[in-house]
Nucleic acid binder design. Structure first.
Lengths: 340, 340
DNA sequence: TTTTTAACCGAAAACGTTTTCGGTCGTTGC
DNA sequence: GCAACGACCGAAAACGTTTTCGGTTAAAAA
C-alpha cells in the first residue's frame, strides 16, 4: 500500500503539492472548487499528514512530556488522568515517564524529552531531587514547564499545587478540637517541599493551640511510598510512647494504612485509643476498616489545571506573546471518617 | 541559542554534514582521527539529533503507543509500569492514551497513533468494543500490535493474558473444598472475553464438584469498574436469596470490596456467614477488613511481557524477518486471606 | 612512469510538509 | 489601448538527517 502524501494527491489532480497543501489548510488564494476537489480526494484516500515532516517543518510535535515519580499511586494516576483528558481534547499526545524517585533517571528523561522536541513538559519531582539544573535546561530551551505537587521553589515557572501547610494545619487542628492532645506525626522525606510544609502545618496547629511541640513524636518515613514503613513506625511509636500518644497524623494515606494495620493487629482501638488522620484521600481509605479520615487532594483537578496552563503557555509561545507564570493552588478538603 | 545540528558541527570542523553524520555513527570509511574530533565536538556542544528529521528519514519514531481503558486502576497502573520499564531500557518513548471504556474514543486514538507513525501499539480493549476493524487497520499498516488482557480472539496478533478460566476455576474450587456450596457470582459485562471466561471457570468448578449451577446466583455487573455496583448487587443478593447463599466470587476486587462494605454495614459476618473471593489482587485488598482473598494477576509482568514482545516484533520487522505471533499466558496465583 | 588500489571524504537526493514570492492569466479602470 | 489589479496557482527553499555513489588523493603495484 503506497503511502498517500501530498504528492500523490497532487499527481492525481494535476496540481502541485503546494496547492494541495494550501487547499487542505483553507488558504484564501485557492479556488473554492479546487479546495473541494482536494479535500474530497484527501478524505476518500484517507490522507493523514506525516507527523515527522510537520514536526520538522513547523518545529512543533504536538507532544507533551510528563514525568512522575511513580505510576502505581492513586494520586499520580489521577494526575495523569486529568492531563490525558485535557490533551485528548486538544489532539495532543502525552508521553509518560516515571522517574521511580530516581534523580539520575529523572534527569535523563528530561534530556530525552528535550531531544525529541516535545512542546511542553509537566513534572512532579522525585523526592530526592535537590539539584534543579535539568529544569533550568528546559527553561533555557524555551520549552514551557509546569511543576505539579512536587515542586522546586527556586525554579521560575508555573506551578500547580495545594496549600500543604494549611491542609495539614486544618487536619491537626481538627484533631485538637476533637480533644486529642498528644499527636504524633509521620512525616515524609526531609527534602521535598510538601513534606516540609505538611510538617510545618502540623507544628503550627499545635502551637496555635498551646500544645507543646514534642520532637520525639515526629518520625521520618523516608520510604514513604511503602506502607510497611507506616507499620514499622507505628510499632516504634507505641514502643517509644506507650499510652502517652493519642493521635497520629501522617504525611500520606499509605503510611496511615500501614499504621492502622499495626494498630488493628495489636488490638489498639481506633479511634478510642488512638486516632489516625491521613493525607491524599486514596480510594482505599474509604474502604478500609476503620475508614480513614484524610485530605482530599484532587489529583485529577491538579492534572487538568497543569495541562491547561501548559497548553496556554504553548499557545502564547506560538503567538510570541510573553508568558507570565502562574501559581495555582488547588483546594483541599477535610474528609472525616471513622478513624477519628 | 542556535540549535546545534550536523551542519554547525560540519562548519566548525570544515567537514561536510555527511562526514559528520557518518563519523557519529561509526562508519568504516571515516578516519579514526576525524571520528574522534567529531565525536568530541558533538559531546562538548551537546549535540542531539533532531528526532523529526530522523523519523522522516528512517520512517521510525522510537515511540510506541499504549491504549488502556482507564488510568486509575491498580491493575492497569501496573501494566503501564511494566511497559514503561521495558521501554526505558530501550530508549523508547511511550505515549499513553485512555479510552475511558469508550469504543469511539479507542478507535480515534488508534488513528492518531497511526498518523503519528508510532513503531508499535499495545492495547487493552474497552469492554464495549465489539468491532475490531480499527485493530485490523493497525495490522494493515504493518504496525506491530500486542493485545493485553482485554483481547479480541479473532484478531491475528500477539497476545498477553492470563488463563482466566483456570484462575477462577481454582478460586471457586477452593471455596468448595472449604465447604461452601451456594456460591454466587458477580460477573462483568457480557461482552469481554475475560468476563466470559471467568464465568465459565466458575461454572465448571461447580459442575466438576457436582454442585448444581443456579443462574439466579449470577449477577451481571456491567458497570464493574464501580464499587457501588458491588454494594448494590450484594444488597440484591441478600434480598433474593437470604440465607441460601454462603459465598461470593466476583469478577474483580472492586466489586468484592463493594460487597464487603455492604456486608459489614449490615452485620453479615465474613467469612462465617458468607465468604468472599475477588479477582486481580488489588493492593487495597490486603488492607481492608477482613482482608480479601483474591487472584494475583501480575499486571507488571503482563506489561513487561507485552513490551518485550512488541520490541521483538519491531526489531524483526526492521530486519525484514517474518514475525510469528505469540500467545503468552502469565501465571496467576491464589492469594488466600481472611475473607474465606 | 603509468596503472591500480585503498583510504578518505563530499555531493546530492530523498523523506513530506509549509510558506514565501512570483508568475500568468483575464478583467477592470482610465 | 494601456496600465493596474485581482484571482489563482506553482517553483523553490527550508527543516535536519541518512546513505548511495562517486571523486580525490596518495601509496602500492606494474
Amino acid at each position: 500500500m503506497p503511502k498517500v502524501t501530498l504528492k500523490v494527491l497532487a499527481n492525481k489532480l494535476g496540481l502541485s503539492t503546494s496547492t494541495v497543501s494550501k487547499a487542505l489548510k483553507d488558504y484564501s488564494d485557492i479556488n473554492e472548487e479546487t479546495k473541494l476537489k482536494v479535500q474530497e480526494l484527501a478524505k476518500s484516500l484517507n490522507y493523514t499528514p506525516n507527523a515527522f515532516a510537520q514536526g520538522l517543518r513547523n518545529q512543533e510535535s504536538k507532544i507533551v512530556g510528563v514525568i512522575i515519580p511513580s505510576m502505581v499511586h492513586y494520586f499520580f494516576s489521577n494526575i495523569i488522568d486529568g492531563i490525558l483528558k485535557e490533551a485528548e481534547e486538544r489532539n495532543y499526545m502525552v508521553v509518560l515517564m516515571q522517574s521511580n524517585e530516581d534523580y539520575d533517571l529523572e534527569k535523563k528523561q528530561v534530556d530525552v524529552l528535550l531531544s525529541k522536541g516535545v512542546d511542553g513538559i509537566i513534572i512532579s519531582l522525585a523526592n530526592k531531587t535537590r539539584d534543579f539544573s535539568h529544569l533550568a535546561k528546559i527553561i533555557d530551551y524555551n520549552i514551557p514547564l509546569i511543576l505539579v505537587d512536587k515542586i522546586a521553589k527556586t525554579i521560575n515557572c508555573s506551578k500547580v499545587l495545594i496549600d500543604d501547610r494549611k491542609a495539614s494545619y486544618d487536619a491537626v487542628n481538627y484533631l485538637i478540637q476533637k480533644g486529642y492532645k498528644r499527636i504524633a506525626h509521620f512525616r515524609g522525606d526531609l527534602n521535598p517541599q510538601n513534606s516540609i510544609d505538611r510538617f510545618l502545618g502540623y507544628k503550627k496547629a499545635l502551637l496555635d493551640n498551646n500544645i507543646e511541640f514534642d520532637p520525639s513524636l515526629v518520625y521520618v518515613c523516608d520510604n514513604n511510598s511503602d506502607f510497611s514503613d507506616g507499620y514499622e513506625n507505628a510499632e516504634k511509636l507505641i514502643a517509644d510512647h506507650g499510652n502517652n500518644v493519642d493521635a497520629l497524623f501522617t504525611v500520606n494515606d499509605l503510611l496511615a494504612i500501614g499504621a492502622i494495620n499495626y494498630f488493628n493487629e495489636n488490638n489498639i482501638k481506633i479511634p478510642e485509643r488512638i486516632a489516625v488522620f491521613g493525607f491524599s484521600n486514596w480510594f482505599m481509605s474509604s474502604v478500609i476498616s476503620p475508614s480513614l479520615s484524610s485530605i482530599e487532594q484532587n489529583g485529577t483537578k491538579m492534572g487538568e489545571k497543569s495541562a491547561q496552563i501548559l497548553f496556554q503557555e504553548i499557545e502564547s509561545k506560538h503567538k510570541q506573546k510573553p508568558i507570565e507564570f502562574q501559581k495555582v493552588i488547588i483546594d483541599t478538603e477535610l474528609i472525616i471518617r471513622k478513624s477519628c
